[in-house]
Design a protein around this nucleic acid. Structure first.
Lengths: 240, 240
DNA sequence: AAGTGGTCTAGACCACCAT
DNA sequence: TGGTGGTCTAGACCACTTA
């Protein structure tokens, strides 16, 4: 048989499409491997290979004896996969968010480019202050395209006990699968210094992050300023 | 058969041990899969699974029709796997190093702890200035345990056209397989500002990195200060 | 007990590389 | 042409979860 693409890649793509189209919702089990094999006219081994890759990408989770599940963006999951700020003592902790402002309007050109939206399209702009161990450590400026989040409102960001990505998934069925982060160091401006309780002059981490769902669709973009005096960004490269 | 560990994990461990003991040198082909299968009393499929994991960890490289090779720490490989500083235009470039100083002596306690060496053991201390597009961008303070690098000398760091990790591999058979990086932002001191051509006050990235070889043995540790005005640190999380 | 994923095998065929 | 890795299959048996 002559194929332009290996069968397991095709199976993987079919599964990804079902996820993108919300055929299987987060937290639910997908069909068993023998069932998928029958559906895609492939052997169980081939299906396993496709699922293996999606598991490696944190999109599916296997549980022996129970089934294979669509990853839920729980707090713990987020902490492990997408949150890289740890205390200098090595401990990682879930940040406590406080919303500072919520607006709807137009974004600047750079933001429109990052989000891949047209000029003048509406976005939501949310500013949050994140606390770790009670102290303000991160100022977060979030931008999300209004068309992806039809009835987004201020209330959803207050008193939530989920992450923003968890919110996207639970309420809109949008699952963030990867992010791109750009990290630099800048002198904090007066407002940021005040929020983070830093004296002049103060160096802070500037982290620009854009999040993507299946098919490389941008979901949100944000700029974070981090007081890196008692915390740092952890990056692991290579094996493991 | 009852096993405490899956067979493919054992095979993987055997292969890793052969690599650690330099039985197979970098750039060389390891034995073919049928041969390994025979040697370890396993099926080819099981050997493939072990090799798959080592390939995913960038330790081996497959080449269809030719064989499976021990990864060589070429410039290109380093750039892709361990070097995360990119220009703000998105371009990545190989840095040009200039050695500022080379010393042999005792390290401070923190360094001894990071390297996992005893108190008072000798280390080499190397300071380099790294240029990108001709401009000084990174000040690198390197520490390596003398006992791992017996006849290390200043000359080896001058006029080299390899990376430090490439040097370890070619001359000492030591292969770096993973690194741990800790990133924060600080105000640059006068000396660093001068080297990087920055005015007062200046915020720089402070990157502390420790590199490990097989079996979690620390190979070197370094502190880098990066002028993040025209460059940044790139971090990709999640799938792909 | 039935169903799920986890491991392992043996073998077929294909694509690619060296000679 | 022979050897290498790449894909795919069919089936056995194990470990775990649920009912």
């Amino acid at each position: 048989m002559h194929r332009s693409q290996p069968l397991y890649k095709e199976v993987k793509q079919h599964i990804t499409e079902s996820l993108r189209d919300s055929k299987w919702r987060h937290g639910q089990a997908i069909p068993s491997e023998p069932l998928l094999a029958k559906r895609f006219n492939a052997s169980v081994g081939t299906v396993r290979r496709a699922v293996d890759e999606l598991v490696a990408e944190n999109i599916l989770v296997r549980q022996q004896g129970r089934g294979t599940f669509v990853t839920s963006h729980t707090r713990d999951y987020m902490l492990n996969v997408f949150f890289q700020i740890v205390g200098n003592d090595g401990r990682k902790e879930f940040p406590r968010p406080e919303m500072l402002s919520f607006k709807r309007g137009r974004a600047d050109l750079a933001t429109e480019e990052l989000l891949g939206i047209g000029h003048g399209e509406l976005v939501f702009m949310v500013q949050n202050l994140l606390r770790l161990q009670g102290k303000p450590v991160i100022v977060d400026n979030l931008r999300l395209p209004a068309k992806l989040f039809p009835d987004m409102s201020e209330n959803l960001f207050v008193d939530r006990d989920t992450t923003t990505y968890g919110l996207y998934q639970m309420r809109y069925g949008i699952t963030v699968v990867r992010t791109v982060e750009t990290i630099s160091a800048v002198l904090a401006d007066a407002k940021t210094r005040k929020l983070l309780g830093m004296a002049h002059p103060a160096a802070v981490l500037k982290i620009m992050r854009t999040a993507y769902t299946y098919k490389d669709l941008a979901v949100d973009t944000r700029i974070r300023f981090v007081n890196a005096r008692h915390h740092h960004y952890l990056s692991l490269l290579g094996k493991r």
